[in-house]
Design a protein around this nucleic acid. Sequence first.
DNA 1: GAAAAAACATGATATTAATCATATTAAGGA
DNA 2: TCCTTAATATGATTAATATCATGTTTTTTC
Lengths: 143, 143
Amino acid sequence: MLSNSSKYALKAVLYLALHTDENNKMMVKDISERINLPKAYIAKLLQELSKRKIISSTRGPKGGFYVTPSNKNETVMQIIEVIDGKKRMETCMLGLEDCNEQKPCPIHRLISPSRSKMITLLENKTINDLAKDLELNKTFLPV
Amino acid sequence: MLSNSSKYALKAVLYLALHTDENNKMMVKDISERINLPKAYIAKLLQELSKRKIISSTRGPKGGFYVTPSNKNETVMQIIEVIDGKKRMETCMLGLEDCNEQKPCPIHRLISPSRSKMITLLENKTINDLAKDLELNKTFLPV
DNA sequence: GAAAAAACATGATATTAATCATATTAAGGA
DNA sequence: TCCTTAATATGATTAATATCATGTTTTTTC
Ligand code: FES
Ligand code: FES
């Protein structure tokens, strides 16, 4: 469903949302240790997210990655799109060039409603929403 | 969502459902031409499906692949499972070892209902169901 | 029963995604 | 200003999928 990269990115961003802000930045080395994912890989992903303004970063001593309140308003789907590309979730399940009601493949009508629902939910869910659930121990971040 | 292999397999099986039976078998060469997918690749997939009794086949002259009425009762999910493996659809979207309500990841509760719905639909939809829609031109097989 | 036709089994190659490595640039402190 | 630190840019390697190729076995037909 999601690529490995998107999963990692999401985990990292959520971790940052819980443990960083403008005054408490975190180096990629520490992040990768805490969420138990390869450092170099995570580094590349965070750099991309930072370039696209999904998260924030500063270089040099006392630098690192962090998320601002504004960053927390980014949605889950934004992250997926940055990492996996726009149409990861919306392509035809059977490989049709374009997936729509006009010329539906045999399983389009079957799965389209639930898939659309899922997409909408991901588009409307912010990092902040998820972070709050984590803080309340309603959900758990995979380690 | 689905692997390329599953997509190909589904297309091939649906094509067979529409154009073959015990008395009208079809060689992999022809199938691959009609659905416009690589011959050797399709061959491997069909052989696997045949071994698992999702479709039928006989060797030698006048042989080929075909689907019986019984084969048509197989579900879409059966095909996905044979090709992509049991848990392709059910794994945690964030990579948690096991995906369940007991220890949900941050997006589990968000997407789980729609995903479950989708899985149920795929588990209950038979090849026959999809073939009928195709025959009535209600849906279209990607070429 | 021999020859041809087809699936079957198995392994090789190519492409893509995942992972790692390193030289470069910007920020901060002495 | 210079040194250190940490992100950035870029590219190399590895692993996983997708794709291709070929020899073997079964079935039909003559
Ligand atoms: S056309 Fe195939 S899923 Fe929409
Ligand atoms: S625990 Fe992550 S999707 Fe179910």
